[in-house]
Design a protein around this nucleic acid. Structure first.
Length: 864
RNA sequence: GCCCCCUUGGCGGAACUGGCAGACGCACGGGACUUAAAAUCCCGAGACCGAAAGGUCGUCCCGGUUCGAGUCCGGGAGGGGGCACCA
């Protein structure tokens, strides 16, 4: 195969030198440095900042290619664009690297940043690098510590006990992903759940607001808004108190279905419920059962999927509405302590989990909601609970009511009898921000035996991480550092210990977008700068951040607004979530994954191992990942084809929100197109009229036709970018290039002029996607300024509409013929013209025309 | 388990608000250029029947609404995502 760099044809476009040339030109002219300018409309484009893993991957290329299209396009439309870049630089991988490679997390991180920065710079992104920072910069986390103190002041940060995954052999807290089948990923030892005193942010203070405001985020994907709404999980329900028969205790349950109370056949407590603990203390069997439950995973999924298990405590609770009816009290593994009251009443007929449980423990299943049209005596519940609509039966005073009325009636009676209240419950829990790790922002608090936790005075900030730490032993290096933790209480002066927890890295990413407005400010944020730039007009990133990062950032914005750091409520006015980059997977005969570079196509067209020509198995396409070895290194691609080609391929074909399939032929096609554009320009440039010349009054037919195509392309490409359909914009650019490729300019009036117009339009509109090639072409066309500063082409709407239209003529809904007719003809004329067509006459023949539907300029449907 | 999304030629996909399905690209076939190849350029192409003209079928499956459905509604199948310490 021919090497791209050694093409012998007339196209001498050299991506490597050209890209470097224009990158240097943009830097020299400080083209992308953003300066506040109240006279210009601002536009803040932001891609989710990367974790500095050391190398960019194709997901980054796709993300930043999209963001750059928006940034450069908005610049061309006259906006003052802010497009910054930084590093989400704290987190676990640096500590893992420290452990594995004996390299300090800071050194590892900053080396990675340097490497990735140069990789990103090779992409030719229109970034303002003067605003760059990393969240592990002392200056950044110093400002973050101030924000933490403000959260403490406004009572949005607090401390309480909470459950964690504890690895007893490594003496460390594990992330969920570090727990595999209930065991620590490194130690292989069974993980325990343990309570630890930890810091929390009171996100629940904004739960209603965070939910309700989703409705106004109309430039967010519905999917993300729905995921956040489900996450917050507001539900209206009733809290009911049940009296326990023999010990006089009470059990409070929360239910969203109080209407089904007469179908209740048991109560169930979470294993983590205080009463379960009390019972366990007296009964070793219960203690064993609770311990068993704690070995099951903590995620909602694990809890819901596990076999429903219960333990009959022997306690009996009085039914609140049925004298003499007692319900057994179980401890059950499917009741979550974190939601509601940690106790439920079970109505098996109308809840699947309760039904599964009831079948297992042979409890009564009494239907109390009957679907309309079915007699209650005919209605039975087998293995599937009935959760649909209906009327109440078998329910005393509720009989005949709708579900909603019955819910209201129970709540009223419970409130009147003082054994229950209406209540709104949320699934959302406060945000636990404590991490027992080194590589994070130290929490600026001192623990004093007398005063308790005391905030560090602002003047004493930053609390910096000590450099002399080791990772040869498990556990938190801050905790076992010989001197770092020792200090004096800011309140009483007595000897005290520093907080050794660091902040969740989601805190770092909850305000970085605001810091970009004034990255060197002495305070966390400069009000004038954030008031000018915020909110982010277009945020772009992976859908994997749909819930946590975006919800935390929305919370944090509200939290720091309370302290006056900024004035906005919602940080991201527009959000776009891109799809992943995928590639086929390859395995050899023994099932080992193979990299694409280890695989070759043989003469028979089959993929084989490059080293020994052995057959391989091609697996389905999956997200590029190191574990499956199906990765393509962007650096190799940029080295071989150039950044423009890589960017163009990322934007072609696949809709941005969907997954993109990486193929060799796809990148080859993109690369061919760069050559094609360059040829079009080289062949035409010499014969074009000078730049900036006014057009003639009259255009020949071919010139006019080309102008129509040009302006139709302007409309379509612009629309595609505005609607985040870059693949459609790309297709329209191909069409324009195709039209130019076959256009032969003759002596007809305005033909050369129309050709220049079309070529310049192509170049300007290709600019946001392939900026280097476009700059080079712009120069070749005799332009003196930078294309990056050139305006977007102006649409002449008069050239969009043709004089005649082709109307499809249908008979009973099936297309039978076409009708060429002047556009915007009166309806009756179109109808007559259609009926006069031979095919229509033949088909109608002796039948009566019952109806003729005319859609102007589109379609005629003759119904016989 | 619960919640959500997706499904259109050999492939990626296009189709504004219910109005000509398959734009554009990839792969493929034929041709031009070339000693030859590569590159480039031109032409072809949803499937089936047909020499052709033309016809029939066709947007995962089944049903519905409508003059008209890829698009709206109901049911189903297959694939994917999220579910609280990965970032």
């Amino acid at each position: 195969m021919e090497q791209p760099g050694r093409m012998k044809s007339m196209a001498r476009y050299n991506a490597k030198t050209t890209e470097a040339k224009w990158q240097a030109a943009w830097t020299a002219a400080m083209t992308f440095q953003a300066v506040e300018n109240p006279d210009k409309p601002k536009y803040y484009v932001l891609e989710m900042f990367p974790y500095p893993s050391g190398r960019i991957h194709m997901g980054h290329v796709r993300n930043y290619a999209m963001g750059d299209v928006v940034a450069r396009y908005k610049r061309a439309r006259g906006f003052n664009v802010l497009h910054p870049m930084g590093w989400d630089a704290f987190g676990l991988p640096a500590e893992n690297a420290a452990l594995e490679k004996q390299i300090h997390p800071a050194k590892w991180t900053y080396e990675n940043i340097a490497n990735m920065r140069s990789q990103l710079q090779a992409m030719g992104l229109s970034l303002d690098w003067s605003r760059e920072f990393a969240t592990c910069d002392v200056e950044y986390y110093r400002q973050q510590q101030k924000l933490f103190l403000d959260l403490l002041k406004s009572d949005l940060a607090y401390r309480r006990e909470s459950w964690v995954n504890w690895d007893p052999s490594e003496n460390t807290v594990l992330a969920n992903e570090q727990v595999i089948d209930g065991r620590g990923w490194r130690s292989g030892v069974a993980v325990e759940r343990r309570q630890l005193s930890q810091w929390f942010f009171r996100i629940t203070a904004f739960e209603d607001e965070l939910l309700d405001a989703l409705g106004d985020l109309d430039r967010w994907p519905d999917k993300v808004r729905l995921m956040q709404a489900n996450w917050i999980g507001r539900s209206e329900g009733t809290r009911l108190r049940f009296a326990v028969k023999h010990n006089g205790a009470e059990i409070e349950v929360f239910t969203t279905r109080p209407d089904t109370i007469f179908g209740a056949s048991f109560l169930a407590l979470s294993p983590d419920h205080p009463q379960s603990a009390a019972l366990a203390a007296e009964n070793p069997e219960i203690a064993a059962f609770v311990a068993e439950c704690r070995r099951q995973g903590t995620s909602e999924e694990a809890v819901e999927k596990a076999e429903k298990l219960g333990f009959d405590t022997g306690l009996r609770a009085q039914h609140p509405f049925l004298e003499g009816v007692e319900l057994p009290v179980y401890i059950a593994n499917f009741v979550l302590i974190g939601y509601g009251t940690g106790a439920i009443f079970g109505c098996p007929a109308h809840d699947q989990r309760d039904l599964d449980f009831a079948r297992k423990y042979d409890l009564n299943v009494l239907p109390v909601v009957i679907p309309s049209g079915i007699d209650s005596t005919d209605f039975t519940v087998g293995t599937e609970a009935y959760t649909g609509p209906g009327r109440l039966e078998n329910s005393e005073f509720l009989n005949g009511m709708s579900i909603d009325d019955a819910k209201g009636e129970i709540a009223r009676r419970a409130e009147a009898g003082k054994f229950g209240t209406r209540e709104t419950m949320y699934r959302l829990r406060d945000w636990g921000v404590s991490r027992q790790r080194y590589w994070g922002c130290p929490i600026p608090v001192v623990h004093c035996d007398d005063c308790g936790p005391v905030p560090v005075p602002e003047a004493d900030l930053p609390i910096t991480l000590p450099d002399d730490v080791t990772f040869d032993r498990p556990g938190n290096p801050l905790d076992r550092h010989p001197t770092w933790g020792a200090t004096n209480c800011p309140a009483c002066g007595k000897a005290a210990r520093r907080e050794t927890d660091t902040l969740d890295t989601f805190v770092d990413s909850s305000w970085y977008f605001a810091r970009f407005c004034s990255p060197r400010a002495e305070q966390p944020l400069d009000r004038a700068a954030v008031d000018y730039w915020l909110p982010v007009d277009q945020y772009i990133g992976g859908v994997e951040h749909a819930i946590l990062h975006l919800l935390y950032a929305r919370f944090f914005t509200r939290a720091i607004k309370k302290s006056g750091h900024l004035g906005i409520t919602e940080p991201f006015a527009g959000l776009f979530t891109q799809g992943m980059v995928c590639h086929e997977t390859y395995r050899d005969e023994s099932g080992n994954w193979l990299e694409p570079t280890e695989v070759n196509r043989n003469d028979a067209g089959q993929l084989v191992r490059m080293d020994n020509n052995a057959a391989i198995t091609i697996g389905r396409s999956e997200k590029m990942s190191k574990s499956r070895k199906n990765v393509i290194d962007p650096e190799d691609i940029i080295e071989r084809y150039g950044a423009d080609t890589a960017r163009w391929f990322m934007l072609s074909d696949s809709p941005p929100e969907r997954d993109l399939e990486w193929t060799d032929s796809g990148i080859e096609g993109a690369w061919r197109f760069t050559g094609r554009i360059w040829r079009i320009i080289e062949e035409a440039a010499a014969d074009l009229p000078p730049a900036g010349l006014a057009g003639p009054d009259h255009f020949s037919a071919p010139a006019l036709a080309l102008r129509r195509i040009t302006h139709q392309a302007i409309a379509a490409v612009t629309d595609g970018i505005e609607r985040f359909q870059f693949n459609v914009s790309v297709a329209r650019l191909y069409e324009l290039a195709n039209a130019l490729g076959s256009f032969k300019a003759g002596d007809g009036s305005g033909e050369r002029w129309a050709q220049r117009e079309a070529i310049e339009t192509l170049v300007v509109m290709v600019g946001p996607m392939m900026p280097h090639l476009a700059e080079e072409a712009w120069q070749a066309l005799g332009q003196t300024g930078l294309l990056a500063d050139a305006p977007w082409p102006t649409l002449d709407a008069g050239l969009l509409v043709e004089d005649t239209v082709t109307i499809a003529v249908q008979l009973n809904g099936k297309v039978r013929d076409m009708l060429e007719i002047a556009r915007d003809q009166p309806e009756n004329e179109v109808r007559e013209a259609a009926l006069a067509l031979d095919k229509v006459r033949a088909a109608v023949a002796d039948k009566t025309v019952r109806r003729v539907i005319v859609v102007p300029n589109r379609i005629v449907n003759v119904v016989v």
